[in-house]
Amino acid sequence: MTQTQSAQPDAHTEPTPEDAAAGAEGDDHGEHHEHPSDRQYVKIALILGGLTALEVFTYFESVHNLGDAAIYVILIVLMVLKFIYVVAWFMHLKFDSVLFKRIFVAGIVLALGVYLVMLTAFRIWGV
């Protein structure tokens, strides 16, 4: 049996951070349930451009008055948002099989594990 793709979603549907944060909510049994329209892709790109502009804004000295800790938090939030938008919409994880999300998340968790192990080497073992 061939798999067929459902119709594209409503081109007027606005992508929201909640949608992106929801990430891949595909089912276990297949792929290609629906794909965004070109208009939605452009909206995502505009959001990504805006987030990048906010990131760069933190570079300016005036914003540094917030303190390094606040800058770290702001930059990490913006970075994670951009990451999720690209993975969920451009890489279609939001629409594809949940297996792909699990595989990718496993890689990310392992990568974070590598970083944390190195961090413990500095802070606990005194390398």
Binding site: I103, F104, A106, G107, I108, L110, A111, L112, V114, Y115
Partner: peptide
């Protein structure tokens, strides 16, 4: 997924 490890 494996590339995540490389760049991580």
């Amino acid at each position: 997924g494996s590339e995540c490890l490389l760049f991580g």
